[in-house]
């Protein structure tokens, strides 16, 4: 088993009603496995918000395209569109 941290920011924190979760997954899990797990834990409405077209995903603070195997200790963040300045 691996354990990963999942972070939700701004509107996505509102949608999921949490800012972070620790999720245990079987070895060799990928983002699809994580999303299935989040769907169970958070419900389909929250998942729809996370899967919106304009949501970006950061793995260990680097924006990624959602492929590849997750490692123990990884930090996965869901980022809604940014507005600074």
């Amino acid at each position: 088993m691996i354990s990963v941290s999942v972070l939700f920011f701004a509107s996505l924190r509102d949608a999921t009603c949490t800012d972070s979760m620790e999720v245990s997954l079987p070895d060799d899990s990928d983002l699809t496995a994580l999303m299935q797990r989040l769907q169970q834990d958070l419900g389909s409405e929250a998942i729809a918000a996370l899967q919106a077209e304009n949501v970006r995903i950061a793995l260990n603070q680097t924006l990624i395209s959602p492929t590849g195997i997750l490692q123990d200790g990884d930090e996965i963040a869901f980022l809604p569109p940014v507005t600074g300045g």
């Binding site: 920011f9 509107s11 809604p80 940014v82 507005t83 600074g84 300045g85």
Partner: peptide, 21 residues
Amino acid sequence: KTAAIFWKREDTAAGRRWVEV
């Protein structure tokens, strides 16, 4: 305004609203 990782929320008497670019 468009690329830095920040999120702005306006809190008003009518409620809260996340600002969009």
